[in-house]
Structure formats: C-alpha cells, structure tokens
C-alpha cells in the first residue's frame, strides 16, 4: 500500500482534486451525479483526452506540439472529402488516420533532422496545416457525409449503453498505458526526456523515437477529429482551434513535467476529467462561458503551483 502511494504520488494531487471538484458540483447540482450526465461527461472529454494522450508522449520527450488542432482539422477535412467522393467509410477513416500519422511525422522530421525547437517547428506547421485546410475546403464546411452505419457510429453510437467515443478513448488509453509502462519504446520516451544525450549514448535512436511520438500524436488528433466530424456530420475548416491548449492543460494538470522525463498517462486522463468536470459542472450551474475560462485558467495555475510546492 505504502509503495503504491509513493509510486503514484505524482497523480495523487490531481486525483484528490478531481474527487473534490466532483463532490462540490454534486452538492450544488442535482443532475451532476446522474448516470446519463456522467456518460455525457465522458463523451465530452474523449476528444480532448485522445489528443492529450499523444501530447503526453510529446511532453515526456521534453517537446511540445502546437499543431494538433490543425492536424485535426486537415485530417478531418481530407477524410470528409474522401467520404463525399463515395469511398468506403472504413477505408476513408484509415486513410485519414494515416494522413494524421504523416503530418505528425513531418513535425518529427523537422524537429529531429532539421534541429528546430519543437515549439517553433509546430508553431509553423500549425499555421501551414490550418492554411492547407482552408485551401482544401475553400473556407467552407464539408457536409453531406456518409450515412453509413460505421461512420455514424464513431461519433454518435453506443455499445452496451456506452458512447462509442468513450470506448475508443478507453481502448487508446489502455494501449498507450501499456506502451509507456511496459515496453522498450515507452522506456526510451522517458529516457529521452530525462537526458537526451545520455539516452543517445546508451544506444537509443532518439530521432526515430521522437518521430514516432509526433506521428502517434498526429494520428490520435485525426481520430479525435473523425469523432467530431461524425458527431456534427460535417467537417469544419476551423475545427480544433486552440485544442492544443486544452490538451497541454490536461497533461500539465495531470502532473507531467514540461521539462520532460516525468509523468504518467493516468495523470493526463485525470487532467482531462478535471477539465471536463469543470466545463460540465459550470454548464449545469448555468455559469457563463466567459467565467468558465477564468475558472479553468485558475485551476491550471493552481495545479502547477501545488506541484511546485510539493518539490
């Protein structure tokens, strides 16, 4: 038990925070702790959580990815384009995910082979990918997408009463948790963030690992985008704007260090839940969305300040 606590000390704070926020909202709002609302909440966070899972890998390598929102938009738009051209939805989705992978790989290549700081590299690609989306869509939403069951299922479906996006999120979580905890690749991600030079001198191909990390993040962003597209039944050229901030916030609230090398994906899930609980709860309480932003920012600050304290 004691060992369990010391091993998980970094996510203890966020976890307690999540419980406290939930209880407070439960007291003020009768509808918060209803089964439907909680499922709804999980569905609401699934898009941000998927992106934040990828962002966790990126931040663990001491990087950052600002382009996730733009990749989401470009990947969704291209997938939507394929769908309207009558392509088989499953195939279109797979191609869409591959596009996300490639867009992420471009980030990784610029960062590793071009030796550009991740912040600058992804700031640039964020703008480029967004521009490409606007060019492709001509600035208009793409509508009239597939009526096929499989495409509609992704954003709107339920399995055993659980929203399909939530299932996707949990599957992604399980896989990524396993990768970080149990695989050589996961260990390499931590080592690169902890001390890249020592990692390289220990035989780790840091460039390759980083390119993979950005690629996975790109793919997860497009997955999140396809969920959104399916829900709205249209691809919006402005989709995903400022999503990078929510994703980074979830990672940071979850206790992952922006310096790299330290953090847990469980923390990110909790971080995304905290953001979701606040959004959801404040909506239930009819708090204006303007105030919501102030509260959210305050909580990010609080999380980081508490984290500093404990060190």
């Amino acid at each position: 038990m004691k060992r369990f606590i010391t091993n998980n000390i970094s996510i203890l704070g966020p976890f307690i925070g999540l419980i406290v926020f939930s209880i407070i909202l439960g007291i003020f709002s009768d509808s918060f702790f209803t089964f439907d609302n909680l499922l709804n909440l999980l569905r609401q966070i699934s898009v941000n959580a998927l992106i934040a899972f990828g962002m966790t890998f990126v931040i663990l390598t001491a990087g950052i990815d600002l382009s996730v929102g733009s990749i989401l938009a470009l990947g969704s738009a291209l997938t939507a384009g394929l769908l309207t051209s009558g392509m088989d939805p499953i195939l279109a989705i797979i191609i869409g995910l591959l596009i996300g992978f490639v867009l992420g790989a471009i980030n990784g290549l610029v960062i590793t082979k071009g030796k550009v700081a991740p912040f600058i590299a992804t700031l640039a690609t964020m703008t480029i990918y967004r521009g490409a989306t606007l060019v492709y869509t001509d600035g208009r939403p793409i509508t009239g997408l597939s009526d096929s069951f499989s495409f509609q299922m992704i954003g709107k479906g339920y399995v055993f009463g659980i929203p399909f996006p939530v299932i996707l999120m949990l599957i992604a979580f399980a896989i990524l948790y396993f990768i970080l905890r149990k695989t050589v690749f996961g260990r390499q991600v931590y080592a690169i963030g902890g001390n890249e030079e020592a990692a390289i001198l220990s035989g780790i191909k840091a460039d390759r690992v980083k390119i993979w990390v950005y690629s996975i993040t790109g793919m997860l962003s497009v997955l999140a985008g396809i969920i959104l597209t399916s829900r709205l039944n249209s691809a919006q050229p402005t989709a995903g704007s400022s999503f990078e901030l929510d994703a980074i916030a979830a990672v940071v609230i979850g206790g992952t260090s922006l310096m790299g090398g330290k953090g847990k994906i469980v923390g990110t899930l909790i971080g995304a839940l905290i953001i979701g609980v606040i959004d959801n709860g404040l909506n239930l309480l009819n708090v204006s969305s303007f105030y919501q932003q102030i509260v959210k920012g305050g909580i990010i600050l609080l999380a980081v300040l508490l984290d500093r304290r404990s060190k």
Binding site: T183, V184, R187
Partner: peptide, 25 residues
Amino acid sequence: LVLGSSIRENIALVNLKTVSQKGVI
C-alpha cells in the same frame, strides 16, 4: 545518467534488449 530516474531505469537503459521480448519489458 538520467539523473531524475531510478537506479533500475538507468541500469536497464542500455540493456533494454536483454530484459525485453518483442519490445515488452
């Protein structure tokens, strides 16, 4: 060394292949 990591993680770093099978540690 990766200073913020444990002795275990540091020693394992160059030996990841030895302590894993098909990429799983």
